[in-house]
Amino acid sequence: MSVTIEIAGLPPERIVFAPSPLAELGTALHTLSEPGHHPGVCGWTTAVNAGLKQDLADRLSEADFLWRTTFSDVLLGFAGLRDASAQPGETLADDLDILDRLDDEEFVSASLEFTCSTLYGTPQLRSPLSDPSMRERAMELASARGPQQRQFTKWLLDDPPAVRAWVRRLFEDCDEAFFADTWNRVRFQLTADAREKSELLRRKGLAATLEAVSPALSVDEAGTRIDVDKLSSARTTAVDPAVGAGVTFIPSVYQWPHLLVLHRYAWRPVVHYPVAAPELPGPTSVDQFMLRMEALAHPMRMRLCRHLARAPYTTGELADYYGLSSPEVSRHLSVLKKASLITSRRRGRYVQYQMDLKVVARLGSDFLETVLR
């Protein structure tokens, strides 16, 4: 499973690394609303949430579905402009001005992403602003999400300019309350990371650059597509002449464990990635994680793990203890070893097996990182 970005014929200069104040604000808001996803910054989330004035906290709650359960594409609005040169702004005000350039239909469609009102990544031929049946469908789906979402959707469909002004004011108030200080603290790190990746792209090419961004990113041998290892499948293109060729990579301090890919139809793709830090574990591939879960799903292998977690054992010892044949035990050990859950070492004519405790200890965080990536 992966998200694929077609890049055949994409000029190297159209692969851009750039920080985005609005994207980082969106990530910060998600972190504040879902601190359990981001244990590494719990001190920051606690301090900011404690310092929010009640009015701002209430307004953030009214719209938190734009960043809590989905990362709304309005936070990456530059990618929806029919202008290949459009990139994130230098300041939050710049990014908000760029967002204002989207027409109402694009803004509404991107804002309603949380309702799953369209099959994401495919054409939406009719707008809920002009088509009664699409409006009814959008309201129905929003209602299923909850009364708050239904109220917001109705307001958005009735008066898009008013909602757009409300959202902009909300983000500006966040900037005044806490984000300006946050951005001043992280922007140099993000700018440095973007500059480093741009230089790496120039010197060593795309494959090495993607590896430096995240082990979950790769390019095929022909250099025609970027694959993003995620627990989902989708395709998009960075060479659509209708919207302009290009793919943008946006670093984020608060992003881990998420690795987001904007693959909206008729928008340029964006990869929103966490800046690497020594304390952050590297992502396990989706296939490898699923292999480990499947290996542990068998009751006998779970029982074998009880011994292997305590000390090294030979196949014969395990066979004697559990009353199994040596070939049967060997088959179970082979599955566990293929999943990198156990290690082996030779002691004379015997081979001993033992659980890799570091790998097993990470299964919980690997699960979280895999499903949230």
Rank of each mutant, 00 (worst) to 15 (best):
T284I: 15
A319L: 10
Q255R: 15
R306Q: 14
S233V: 15
M302W: 13
R292M: 02
M293K: 09
A234N: 13
S340V: 11
D240M: 11
A295Q: 02
T314Q: 06
M293H: 04
A238E: 11
A295N: 00
W267G: 02
G348S: 03
E279N: 12
S232D: 01
W256Y: 12
S344A: 15
T315Y: 01
K337N: 10
V253M: 12
A245G: 14
G244E: 10
V275F: 07
A277N: 12
P257A: 04
G316P: 05
D320M: 08
A238S: 10
T314N: 08
Y321C: 07
P299I: 13
P327A: 05
R310F: 09
E317F: 07
Y353A: 00
A295F: 00
M300Y: 13
H258S: 09
R346K: 14
R235P: 09
W267C: 01
V247I: 06
S233I: 13
V253H: 08
A297G: 04
T236F: 01
A238L: 11
C305M: 15
V335P: 12
R303M: 00
Y321L: 12
R303A: 03
L280Y: 13
G223C: 05
D227R: 11
L304K: 05
V271D: 04
S334F: 07
R268F: 04
S325L: 11
C305F: 12
A238H: 08
S252P: 02
A309G: 11
D229H: 09
F289E: 00
W256L: 08
R235T: 12
M293L: 13
R347D: 15
R347I: 11
S334Y: 08
V261G: 05
R292V: 02
P283G: 07
G246N: 03
